[in-house]
Design a protein around this nucleic acid. Structure first.
Lengths: 182, 182
DNA sequence: ACTAATAGTAGCGAGTCGAAACTATTGCAA
DNA sequence: TTGCAATAGTTTCGACTCGCTACTATTAGT
């Protein structure tokens, strides 16, 4: 009778899930945006921790990202490091206090953990294709980890990025890169 | 090597998907919260359109919901109606201008539509169980449509709600209710 | 006839959001 | 080399969200 489409149901479920999760985050020390930025910084490699990269990842503007990073910096959860080679650019590294905050599991993660292996995998795959399609739709970057990138070359000591022309350690290769390409 | 769990990957994908979708909404006339509230009002039945119900649905406080509704009201997208029976309560109805705004499809819905029938169904099921678990976790209401409620009784003319003790029309039964229970 | 409890609101301070204007660099080309 | 143009980041603006506390009506329960 009433024509609520499957598409709208899914859209609504994603929205509610995020809202429920965000409501929990507000009770913590950080707001959802700050938490997302901090989480990104903890997983991004050293070439991908500038304000512009955070802006790209969070799908916002450089101005907004700058403010969020300043807020995190005031709380001493991240620390800014100016680049030697390019005096314009800045890199934000997470502090030990910042890492501690990320350790506290959210209500959403607890709930996701209750899914069985197969459901979990299927869900991840569906979401991945949706995110990829959205990125394509608006011309955003994929932000994958180095080892799945076409510029990544495996070596004896770890890896090598053919785009940036730098050697990568084992942990580097497991981190998110701004330049990631499939 | 690096231990990024499947749980974190899923959490991150949901967050990114929402952020990408929210970034598109900001380019429209409404911000994500206003859009979500408006969308809810368009789908809720007449017993579920009060500020407190919107707050419950959006997982926020009455204060915040009140402000969002006032903002929508200023834009003439919804209109407030005071109740006769209970002079404290208010019901917000969507205006025709409000309905028009909801018609514009978002980037996310376009992307969801590209999923095949089976993937779409599986995704909806997974998300539904996550939302339900989150609601249970924090003691929220389910907000389903009347016809799936245990208080709903099918009749000749449409339906009947045993909880509120009111007859329901066919379209009523397809709308979201605050008192929904499984 | 008194309390509660409930529904909604106003105001506060911190912060997000896009947009636009702004500084300081770096790159490139004539 | 000078002279832009592109890039990186920041600041400010106005509208708004967010939780919170304090507040006003109204209604319910004893």
């Amino acid at each position: 009778m009433t024509g609520i489409s499957q598409t709208q149901i899914i859209q609504d479920l994603i929205d509610r899930l995020t809202r429920l999760s965000a409501a929990e985050e507000w009770n913590g020390p950080l707001n959802p945006s700050q938490f997302a930025a901090l989480s990104y910084l903890s997983r991004a490699n050293r070439f991908s921790r500038a304000p512009s990269h955070v802006a790209d990842y969070l799908a916002t503007t450089r101005g907004t990202a700058s403010q969020t990073l300043k807020a995190l910096s005031r709380k001493e959860l991240i620390k800014e490091t100016r680049s030697d080679t390019d005096k314009r650019s800045i890199r934000y590294d997470i502090t030990s206090e910042g890492s501690d905050i990320l350790k506290t599991a959210s209500g959403l993660s607890g709930v996701i953990e209750t899914l069985d292996q197969e459901t979990s995998q299927t869900l991840a795959d569906s979401l991945k294709s949706l995110v990829l399609a959205m990125l394509q739709h608006r011309g955003g970057r994929s932000f994958g980890v180095c080892k799945t990138c076409r510029h990544h070359q495996k070596t004896e000591t770890g890896g090598y990025c053919q785009l940036l022309e730098v050697p990568l350690s084992g942990s580097d290769a497991g981190q998110i890169c701004h330049e990631h390409a499939l």
